[in-house]
Write a protein that binds this DNA or RNA. Structure first.
Length: 799
DNA sequence: AAAACTGCATCTCAA
DNA sequence: ATGCAGTTTT
C-alpha cells in the first residue's frame, strides 16, 4: 500500500474505488458544487475521498473546512480521512490543521476567538468565558423573566415563547426587528419578552444554541477583520446534510466561503444532501436552501448520486414507493444492483408489549442465524417515550442494548449540579447556574435572603454573584445570611485562586479541579447521604465520580495549541486566558454540545434503540420500526403544522432506508398512552407501501389468545391489566366518594401490607393518599426504592 | 428546611 | 404514568 519512498501517491488511487458519479463529485474541486445524494449512495465516502484528494493534490489541509451536524459524524469523517491519507502514505504532518467539526462547535470556537473584538458592542457583545445555555437553562431563565414581568407561565408557556423566539433567531431576526414586525397583541407581548430574554442572556454572559449561529453571523458580517481572516484561511468549504441547514446556517455558509453578495459568485463551496431526508423543519431547517442552491450560487455544478449501496432491492422499493407520495418533491431514481433479499415485514400487534416482544424475538432469530451480531440491529421510534417497553422486553430477554441518548447523562440532577458549580467558576455572571447551586447543599442561604440579593442585583443591573460579594452592605439581610454568603463566595475564590486560575502554570489538572469542587462544595457528601437514605439515589455519587472521569478523559484529548482562547489575539498580543480556565471552558463547551446521536457506539456489542431523528446518517443490518400509528407516526403535533405530513413521511423514509438487509415495521392495535389503554389507527404510511413487496400479517389475535398471560404470575382481576380496552373505572356505582375509595383501597392494600408489582418487585405499602382517579399508594420497594403509584393503573397483587 | 402531598398538565423531534 | 409547582406536614 504505502509507496516505498513515502511519497504522495497519485490521486487516482485514492479515488479508484469510487463509481463514476462518485468520482466526478470528488474530483470537482473548484466552484460551487451541489451533490444530491440519495440515501445510501455513499455520500460520506465522497466527502472523505474528496478531502483526501484535495490534500493529495497539495492543498494545505488547514485550508479545508468540513461541517456536519453531529460530533459523531465529524469524528468519523476525520477518522476516515486520516485512514485514507495513511494508506496513501501521507503522514500526520500533512493533515494537521484540517478542520472537521459541527456547525455549533465551529461557532463556539469563533466566538471565543473573536469575543474580545465584540466586547465593545453593547447589545450583542459577549466575553470569551460565556456559557452555552441548553434548553433547560433557557426555560429556567425564561421562567424568571416571566415572573419578573408578572406574566403567568400558564398563559405564557416558557417553551412556547422560546420556540417563537427561536424561530425568529433562525431567521436572523433580533428582538428589535421582531418588535417592528409584531402587529397583534400576542407577538407584541412576545417581542417584549424576547427583548427581556436577550437582556437576561447578555447579563449572564450566556448564549443559547441559536445565538451560537446568529452571533457568529453577526460577527462575520460586522467585523471585517474576523471575516477576512476566516475567508483567507478556509478555501474549501464542505457541508454535509445540507438539506437540514436553517437560514442562519445558510448565511453562515455564504460568509465562510466568501460568496459575493452582488453576483452570488463563490469560490469553493461543496454541499451534500438529500431533500427527501429533510426532517428538521421544526428546528428551522429550510429545504429551499438545497432546492435553490443553483440560484444562490450561479454556475453551480449539480451531481446526482442515485445508486444505492446499502439496502436490498425490496427495502429500496418500499422506501421509494412511500416517498413518491410526497407532492413537494423532486423525484430521484433509486436503484441498486443488489437484487436479492427478503420482503420487509409489516406486523399488526395486539399492544406495545406484544410489539416489543415480537421485535425481540425477531432479533433473536436473526442472531441465532449467525449472519448478524447485536450491534447490527436497531429499533427506531418516533418519540422517546416509546423506548421504555422495548427496553423492558430486551432486558427480560437478556439481549444487550444501548439507548442513543447522549445527553441523558448530562441531564441528571446531580451531574447538572456539579456542572453548575463549574459553570459559575468559569463564568461568575451565570445567574441560572448560580441560583441552582447557591443553596445546594443547604448552606443557610434561603429563599428570602436570596431574593433580597437578587432584587439588589437586578436594581444595579449586575449579576447575582457580584451582589453576593457585597452582601454585607445590602440592607435587610441577617448577619447569619451575610456570613453564609461570604463563605459561599470564598469557595469560588479559592477554586479560581482569586480569578487567576494559577496564572500560566498548569500544575492543577482539570480533573483535580473538578474533584475539588465536588468535595469542597459539599455535593459529594450531600449525595452520599442521599444514597444512604433512598434507593433511588443510589447511583448518584457514582455519576458524580463519572463526571470527574469525563474531565480526566477530556484532559487527555485536549490540545491547548488548538484552543482559540490560547492563540495570540488577532492584533498579535498574547492571550490573557490562563490555561486551566481555557481548559475548563473547553470542557464545559464540549459537554454542552454533545448530541444524542453521538452516543451511538458501533463498538458496543448491543442492539441500539433510538429515535428516527437520531437514526439519520446511520445504517444497520436489521432494523425494527415500531409504532406506525396515526398520531405517533405521523405525529399528531406535526400534522397540525403540515396536514400533508410530508416531513413525517420523510422521517419514515429515513427509517426504512437505514436498513440494509432486514426490516420489520410494527403497529399495535392498542397502546397505553398517558396511562390509558387506547385503540389505535394504523399509520397512513402503511397503506402507502407497495403491498406486493411486503409481507403483512395480523398477529394481534394470536397474541391475545396464547401469549399475553404467560410472562408472570396471574394478577388480581380487579387491578391487573385488562385484556380488553379499558377506560377509567366508571364512577356510576354511586359509591365513589373519596373517603369510600380510600377505604376500599386500604382494604385491598392496607398500609403496612406487602404487595408485588410486576416490574418493581415486592414492597411495603407506606401510605395511601389522593382521591378518585388520583388515589395513590406510596410503596417502599425492596429493590428499587420508594415510589408512588396510581392505584387505578398500577399492577399490584397482595402478597 | 426538607419531605410529603396534591392538583394539574402532559409526550415530539434536539444542537 | 410521570413530573411539576405550590402547599402542607414533620
Amino acid at each position: 500500500m504505502t509507496p516505498p519512498d513515502g511519497q504522495i501517491e497519485p490521486a487516482q488511487d485514492l479515488l479508484a474505488s469510487l463509481t463514476d458519479e462518485q468520482r466526478l463529485a470528488a474530483e470537482t474541486t473548484e466552484g460551487p458544487v451541489l451533490v444530491v445524494a440519495a440515501a445510501g449512495s455513499g455520500k460520506t465516502r465522497v466527502i472523505t475521498r474528496r478531502i483526501a484528494h484535495l490534500i493529495s493534490m497539495g492543498i494545505p489541509s488547514w485550508q479545508i473546512l468540513a461541517l456536519t451536524f453531529t460530533n459523531k459524524a465529524a469524528g468519523e469523517m476525520r477518522e476516515r480521512v486520516e485512514l485514507l491519507l495513511a494508506d496513501a502514505g501521507m503522514g500526520e504532518r500533512v493533515r494537521r490543521g484540517l478542520t472537521v467539526t459541527t456547525f455549533h462547535a465551529l461557532c463556539a470556537r469563533l466566538l471565543r476567538r473573536y469575543a474580545p473584538m465584540m466586547e465593545g458592542a453593547p447589545r450583542w457583545g459577549i466575553h470569551a468565558d460565556y456559557t452555552i445555555y441548553d434548553t433547560d437553562d433557557q426555560v429556567a431563565l425564561m421562567k424568571g423573566i416571566l415572573k419578573e414581568m408578572n406574566l403567568e407561565s400558564s398563559r405564557w408557556p416558557p417553551r412556547t415563547v422560546l420556540s417563537v423566539i427561536s424561530d425568529a433567531k433562525n431567521r436572523l431576526e433580533d428582538a428589535e426587528e421582531f418588535e417592528k414586525s409584531a402587529m397583534d397583541f400576542y407577538s407584541r407581548s412576545v417581542a417584549k419578552i424576547f427583548s427581556a430574554y436577550e437582556k437576561g442572556l447578555r447579563l449572564a454572559n450566556a448564549v443559547d444554541f441559536d445565538d451560537l449561529l446568529t452571533l457568529t453571523v453577526r460577527l462575520l458580517r460586522e467585523c471585517e477583520e474576523a471575516r477576512t481572516e476566516v475567508q483567507q484561511r478556509w478555501r474549501y468549504l464542505m457541508i454535509d446534510e445540507y438539506q437540514d441547514t436553517n437560514h442562519a446556517q445558510f448565511v453562515l455558509a455564504t460568509l465562510l466561503c466568501g460568496r459575493d453578495e452582488e453576483t452570488g459568485d463563490a469560490p469553493n463551496i461543496f454541499v451534500v444532501g438529500d431533500p427527501d431526508q429533510s426532517i428538521y423543519g421544526w428546528r428551522g431547517a429550510d429545504i429551499t436552501n438545497i432546492l435553490e442552491f443553483g440560484e444562490h450560487y450561479p454556475g453551480a455544478k449539480v451531481i446526482r448520486l442515485g445508486q444505492n449501496f446499502r439496502s436490498t432491492a425490496p427495502i429500496l422499493k418500499v422506501a421509494d414507493t412511500l416517498i413518491r407520495n410526497n407532492k413537494k418533491r423532486i423525484h430521484k431514481d433509486l436503484y441498486t444492483s443488489d437484487e436479492g433479499g427478503d420482503a420487509p415485514e409489516v406486523v399488526l400487534c395486539a399492544d406495545e408489549h406484544h410489539e416489543a416482544r415480537l421485535a425481540v424475538d425477531w432479533f433473536k432469530k436473526l442472531h441465532e442465524e449467525g449472519a448478524l451480531t447485536w450491534k447490527d440491529m436497531a429499533v427506531f421510534y418516533r418519540n422517546n417515550a416509546l423506548s421504555r417497553v422495548m427496553e423492558d422486553a430486551l432486558r427480560t430477554a437478556n439481549v444487550p442494548y444501548v439507548i442513543a441518548r447522549g445527553t441523558a447523562f448530562y441531564q441528571r440532577e446531580e451531574v447538572r449540579d456539579l456542572l453548575a458549580y463549574l459553570r459559575v467558576l468559569a463564568n461568575p455572571s451565570d445567574d441560572v447556574s448560580l441560583k441552582r447551586i447557591v443553596n445546594k447543599p443547604a448552606r443557610k442561604i434561603g429563599k428570602t435572603s436570596l431574593s433580597r440579593v437578587e432584587e439588589e442585583a437586578s436594581m444595579q443591573g449586575r449579576p447575582i454573584m457580584e451582589a453576593l460579594r457585597t452582601a454585607s452592605s445590602i440592607a435587610g439581610l441577617s448577619p447569619a445570611a451575610t456570613k453564609a454568603m461570604a463563605k459561599f463566595v470564598t469557595l469560588f475564590d479559592e477554586w479560581s485562586q482569586g480569578g487567576t486560575f494559577m496564572g500560566t502554570s498548569m500544575e492543577t489538572p482539570l480533573s483535580d479541579l473538578v474533584s475539588r469542587v465536588l468535595v469542597q462544595s459539599g455535593l459529594q457528601a450531600h449525595y452520599r447521604a442521599a444514597a444512604e437514605r433512598s434507593e433511588g439515589d443510589a447511583e448518584k455519587p457514582a455519576n458524580l465520580d463519572e463526571l470527574v472521569s469525563a474531565a480526566a478523559e477530556f484532559e487527555e484529548r485536549y490540545d491547548p495549541s488548538a484552543d482559540p482562547a490560547l492563540q495570540p489575539l488577532p492584533d498579535g498580543s498574547p492571550p490573557e486566558t490562563p490555561p486551566l480556565l481555557a481548559m475548563l471552558r473547553a470542557f464545559l463547551e464540549s459537554v454542552a454540545l454533545v448530541a444524542d446521536a453521538d452516543k451511538v457506539d458501533p463498538a458496543a456489542g448491543a442492539v441500539t434503540l433510538m429515535t428516527l431523528h437520531a437514526a439519520k446518517g446511520l445504517e444497520f443490518g436489521a432494523a425494527a420500526m415500531i409504532g406506525l400509528e396515526e398520531g405517533l407516526l405521523p405525529s399528531a403535533r406535526a400534522l397540525e403544522e403540515d396536514p400533508e405530513g410530508e416531513e413525517e413521511r420523510r422521517l419514515c423514509f429515513v427509517g426504512i432506508t437505514r436498513a440494509m438487509r432486514h426490516l420489520i415495521i410494527t403497529c399495535a392495535k392498542y397502546r397505553t398512552i398517558r396511562g390509558l389503554r387506547e385503540r389505535t389507527v394504523p399509520s397512513r404510511f402503511l397503506s402507502e407501501l407497495p403491498q406486493d413487496s411486503i409481507r403483512v400479517s395480523d398477529q394481534s389475535e394470536a397474541f391475545e389468545e396464547f401469549e399475553y398471560w404467560d410472562d408472570d404470575e396471574p394478577r388480581a382481576p380487579s387491578t391487573g391489566a385488562s385484556r380488553a380496552p379499558r377506560r377509567a373505572p366508571s364512577s356510576s356505582s354511586g359509591a365513589g366518594s373519596p373517603a369510600r375509595k380510600r377505604e376500599l383501597a386500604q382494604l385491598a392494600f392496607g398500609v403496612g401490607s406487602n404487595v408485588r408489582h410486576a416490574q418493581f418487585g415486592i414492597g411495603e405499602v407506606k401510605s395511601i393518599s389522593g382521591a378518585g382517579v388520583n388515589l395513590r399508594a406510596t410503596i417502599a420497594f425492596r429493590d428499587v426504592g420508594t415510589k408512588t403509584l396510581v392505584l387505578q393503573y398500577a399492577k399490584l397483587t397482595p402478597v
